[in-house]
Simulated scan of single mutants.
Amino acid sequence: MSAPGIPARVPAVLAVSRARARVEFLIFIRERISVVFTFFFPVLLLIVIGAIFHGQQLPGGIDLAQYFVAGMIGAGLFGVSFQNVAIAIPIERDIGTLKRLAGTPMPRSAYFIGKMAMVAFVALAQNVLLLGIGSAFFGLRLPDTADRWLTYLWVISLGIASCTMLGIAASGFIRNGRTAPAVMTPIAIVLQFISGVYFVFATLPSWMQTVAAVFPLKWIAQGMRSVFLPDDYQAQEPAGSWELGRVALVLVAWCVLGFLIAARTFRWRSRFDD
């Protein structure tokens, strides 16, 4: 026999989480700057980079534009989750949104579930747009086997979870919403440059590869390369393989680590309220 109130509480949390996800999505689309720089910026970069490198090839006859699509998917996901969340939460804290939510009967978990659901929806919509533009204008070859699509789905899912948790964790270290973009944007840009988004990862200095390997973006981009590039290309990776087992392990580890850090650092009130 289940404990009293448990069967009623779970559907209630799910219902509140769905409502919160809708609110998060509406907040996102009403912020035009966020929509442009978070949602459309990777799309614009794909168009520019694809146009510049279209027809140029990597060893093995792989179109360079095909390589960059994998990186753009990772960068877009990273921007929507880590960067967007780490900037949005301090702003919501400063204007009192989090304080008001904490004072309502809403289960606090619904806020985080709603945030992650919004990230997932926006990231998937962005992926559809990137794949559509890539295949329509730059000859992107979509995955042709069920295994590759399955890899695509679990890398995207773990990438969204790990980067969102990392963004929530990072928000606890930012003093206020005014400084959040100035702190998080350079971090996101540097990680994109050293994680194989704008450059072929194997050509980067070894110390950059080592630093990038600490963070999830490098592994998301590598997982995406295993989806969109031929299996022969894995010989060009620093480890000589796609390392999908390690990709999953690192992303799961960041989900757990991000959760543990967020549990200690997340604040519902601004420092000025203390």
Rank of each mutant, 00 (worst) to 15 (best):
S109F: 06
A102M: 04
T265S: 15
G223N: 06
F199T: 09
R269W: 10
V36D: 00
R267W: 05
R269T: 13
G177N: 07
R18S: 13
P216Q: 05
L131W: 11
L45R: 00
L166W: 11
L45V: 11
P107Q: 00
S195P: 10
M208E: 14
V35A: 11
M106S: 12
R9S: 10
G134V: 07
Q57H: 12
L77E: 05
T104C: 01
F137K: 02
L131C: 05
A170C: 09
A19Q: 12
G103P: 09
I91D: 01
L98Q: 02
V13M: 11
A253H: 09
I33C: 03
Y233G: 03
V23F: 13
G71Q: 05
R100L: 13
M165S: 09
F272N: 11
N127P: 00
T203S: 15
P181S: 08
I87R: 01
F37D: 03
D232N: 09
G223Q: 04
G79F: 09
S241T: 13
G50L: 08
L58W: 13
P7K: 13
I6P: 00
G76N: 08
S81A: 15
I174M: 03
G167C: 05
R22V: 14
V35R: 01
V252H: 07
Y67F: 15
F37P: 04
V155F: 12
P216Y: 06
T104I: 04
F37M: 08
G132Y: 06
G245E: 09
V247F: 14
W154V: 08
I47L: 15
A202E: 15
L58R: 06
L249N: 03
A263G: 02
V200W: 10
F25P: 01
A170N: 05
S195M: 07
V256L: 09
L257D: 04
G114F: 08
I187F: 10
G245A: 07
G5R: 13
T164M: 02
H54M: 08
L44S: 10
A12F: 12
D274Q: 08
Y111W: 14
A110F: 07
F41E: 04
I49Y: 14
G61F: 07
M106W: 09
R30Q: 14
R267P: 12
F173N: 02
P107M: 00
M106I: 15
P216W: 06
F228S: 03
P7Y: 10
P181T: 07
I49L: 13
T164I: 03
R271Y: 14
L191V: 07
P7T: 06
I95V: 15
E24N: 07
M1N: 10
M106Y: 09
G50R: 08
G114E: 11
V252N: 03
